[in-house]
Write a protein that binds this DNA or RNA. Structure first.
Lengths: 194, 194
DNA sequence: CATGAAATTAACCAAATGGTTAAACTACTT
DNA sequence: AAGTAGTTTAACCATTTGGTTAATTTCATG
C-alpha cells in the first residue's frame, strides 16, 4: 500500500479513536500524518468514507478471533475461559476500542447491521452441546453473552471512571487488568461450571 | 424555576444525551425547546456551560443513591443485591445515561475529578466489616466494584450491540433487563457470598 | 396609562470546518 | 529532453456553528 495512504490511516485511527467522529477534525488528522489536508480527500474522498474505513476494521476486531477458540475440542466453560483471557489481553493493547465501537454502533445502528458477525451462533452451539451433557449450568444464552462480555470489556469501558473512583494511575489500571484475567476465569467457572 | 429555562434544560438533556457534546447543535436544542437560539445564551451563556449543567446532574445520578442502601443494617452481599436491583431499575428508566457519562468522563477527566463522589468508601467499609466476620469471600475491592457495576451497567452500555448480536427489538431488550435483575442478584450471591 | 426592567426575537458576525481547485512537483516512459 | 500520469500543495470556497446585538415585546408596578 502507498506510504502516504498508510500514514493517513494511522493518523486517522488515532484521532478517531480518541475523539470520535464528531470530535475529530480532518485538519488534525492531516497534521498528525504530516501531510496536506487535501491528501485526505485525494485518497479517501470524504470524512465519512475515511471514518467508515477505520470503523469497519475496528468493529471486526472488537468481536475477536472467537472462531478459533470456539472450534477447539473442549468444554464450553474452558472455551469461555480461554476467550476471556485472550480478549482481556487484546483489550489491554486496545483499551479505547470498546468505547469507540459501542459509540458508533449506537450512533449508526443501521450501518453496523450490515457488517458481518457470527459470534453468537458459535457460542450458542457450543453451549447447547455442553448443557445437554450436563457439563454446564442452565442459563439464558443472552445472559451468558452479556455476562462474559461484560466481565471482560466493562473495565475498559469504565476505565476513566475507575481510575477516578479508585484514585488509580494508568499503570495501576493496567496492573488491575492483568489481575482481571485470573479474576475473569475464576468468575466464569463459578458462574457457569456445574 | 423559569418556564423557558426549564424547557431549555429538558431539550438540552435530550439532545446532549443522544448526540454527545460534539454531536449536539445549539440550534437543535433551541428547536426542540421551541424557542429562539439566543435564549440559550441568555440563560446559560455558552454551550459549555449548558452542557456542564446537564452533565453534572447526570454524573451525580450515575452513581446512584448508594448511600441509603449502604447505610442499612444488613450483610454486605445483601446490600449489593439491593443495590443491583435498584440500579438496574434506574437504568431501565435511563438507558442512555451510562454511555453518556462514561464518554464525558473519558473526554474530560480533569473536570470530573472535581465532582463529589463517595461511593467507594461506603462500599469498602461495609465489605471489610463482613469479610472480617467471615460473611463474605475475599476479593480485591477494586475487582468487586468493577464486577458489580459491570453486571448492572454493561448491558446498557452494550445495548445497541446486544440488540444487533441477538437480533432483538427494544422491547426484547427491556424484557431481558427485567430478567437481568434476578440474574444480577444470583450472580452476586454466587460470586461473593461465603 | 406610563415606565422600566426582563424576556424574546431576527438579523448578523467571525471563526471553524469539510471540501475543491488549479497549479506545481515527481518520477517514469519514450 | 519531452511528455505524461500520478502525487502534493497553497489558496480558496460555501456552509455550519457558536455567539452577539440591537430592536421589539411582555408585563408587573407606580
Amino acid at each position: 500500500m502507498n506510504q502516504t495512504e498508510e500514514k493517513i490511516l494511522e493518523a486517522a485511527e488515532k484521532v478517531f479513536l480518541k475523539h470520535g467522529y464528531d470530535g475529530s477534525r480532518m485538519q488534525a488528522i492531516a497534521d498528525l500524518a504530516g501531510i496536506n489536508k487535501a491528501m485526505l480527500h485525494y485518497y479517501f474522498r470524504s470524512k465519512d468514507l475515511l471514518f467508515e474505513r477505520i470503523f469497519k476494521e475496528k468493529f471486526s476486531r472488537f468481536f475477536p478471533a472467537i472462531e478459533e477458540t470456539f472450534q477447539l475440542e473442549m468444554h464450553f466453560v474452558d472455551k469461555l475461559c480461554i476467550f476471556a483471557e485472550k480478549y482481556i489481553d487484546f483489550l489491554i493493547q486496545n483499551p479505547y476500542l470498546p468505547l469507540f465501537v459501542l459509540n458508533n454502533i449506537n450512533k449508526n445502528p443501521d450501518f453496523s447491521k450490515n457488517l458481518p458477525l457470527n459470534m453468537p451462533q458459535l457460542l450458542l452451539q457450543s453451549y447447547l452441546e455442553d448443557v445437554e451433557k450436563g457439563l454446564c449450568k442452565m442459563h439464558q444464552p443472552a445472559q451468558i453473552l452479556i455476562t462474559v462480555l461484560g466481565i471482560c470489556a466493562f473495565p475498559f469501558l469504565a476505565k476513566p471512571m475507575m481510575t477516578l473512583l479508585l484514585g488509580a494511575s494508568d499503570e495501576d489500571f493496567f496492573e488491575l487488568m492483568q489481575q482481571r484475567k485470573e479474576e475473569a476465569k475464576k468468575q466464569i467457572r463459578i458462574l457457569f461450571e456445574v
